[in-house]
Nucleic acid binder design. Structure first.
Lengths: 193, 193
DNA sequence: TTTTATACTGACTGATCAATCAGTCAATTT
DNA sequence: AAATTGACTGATTGATCAGTCAGTATAAAA
């Protein structure tokens, strides 16, 4: 791995687990096996390093979902929604640090004053909500989903799924045992009776 | 207001809006109109101030929900769940700083090493989930709610509601327009067909 | 060979901030 | 009146840390 990627990798883990302010760049440089100055040579500032990380996370998530969309065929819109939610839960487990980072407040504080940060975050969320919404629209057409407002329902579903993932990271409850229940709830919410 | 409460008040707002590490106690003392040493006279350390705030937030939330439980009578279990969710959304708007604080990661990091912090957080969440769960149990008895697992469904519902509140604080979407939709989703999820 | 550019180093600086503590002041107590 | 206590002050300290910069090493270009 290139030194730049090595720094990005370790900084992602530390920012996600310890927070932005609580992570000293000296920790990042030590873990990466480089001098502290190297970080500034590549990223100019701590904030810039965070933006580089976010850009990378965005590209990785969008890329994964692109591949997912291409390779999946579902028998109905409802099954597409179910598949998207399951895939999201799997991705959150696979990319633990990245999703933990996305649940940190400092990103949203930065987004208030930094349009680049804001647009990265919006792209990530739009991608995630969009997949659910597409499934719902398909379901409305093929009759596998009852009469609901596609976009709003997608946001609520996303909020539920993302809420469970975040709940897990809080370490108070283990919500992974709720995943089967989640699929049931989703079914009752969407499938016409 | 006593000086101790004044400090607690301003520290709550600053910790919630700016974060723990990003808030200098000099800001708190300035806003409160006291010398910086006064904070240490009353709270001994910054971490201790945070714990005092959390204790207070816990007591306030539990107290409010106690009053709510006493003064509400619902025609069915389902309506009780609906009422609890609506009340929660109202409370989150009324106690904006406190709920923002509860969505901050530093509390959960502290909870990992500090059992007092952990028990405060657990009491708060148990209180919130419990009200929903009680409604579901009542609904299962009176038939207003279909066959679901009470506790797990309560956790999922809570995750949805809390997810929407947190989504709002992120400032990317305005989720308040989703609240009516939320009630609908809740109805489809719970009411037997 | 000399020059230039690129990648990297690590000691240093200046700023910030939690925490300390000797001291002030007013209110009780003796 | 004198002594004691509790509430509060704010200058100071020591530690931490983002960011700087003069310097080194290596490789490619002239």
């Amino acid at each position: 791995m290139s030194i730049k990627n090595l720094i990005l990798h370790h900084a992602t883990a530390l920012f996600a687990r310890k927070g932005f302010k609580d992570t000293a760049l000296s920790e990042v440089s030590q873990l990466s096996g480089v001098a502290s100055g190297t970080i500034f040579y590549h990223f100019a500032s701590k904030e810039n390093l965070l933006l580089a990380i976010l850009k990378r996370v965005k590209e990785e998530i969008i890329d994964k979902f692109e591949h997912y969309k291409c390779n999946q065929k579902f028998e109905s819109g409802f099954h597409a929604v179910q598949g998207a939610i399951t895939y999201y839960l799997g991705l959150a487990a696979e990319m633990e640090d990245e999703f933990l980072l996305l649940h940190r407040h400092f990103l949203y504080q930065l987004a208030e004053v930094n349009p680049i940060c804001r647009s990265h975050l919006e792209e990530i969320y739009n991608c995630l909500v969009d997949i659910i919404e597409r499934g719902i629209v398909t379901g409305l057409e093929d009759g596998s989903i009852g009469p609901v407002e596609a976009h709003k329902t997608a946001l609520i579903l996303f909020s539920t799924v993302d809420g469970l993932v975040r709940f897990n990271t809080y370490g108070l409850y283990d919500t992974s045992m709720l995943y089967p229940q989640l699929v049931e709830c989703c079914e009752r919410m969407l499938v016409p009776q």
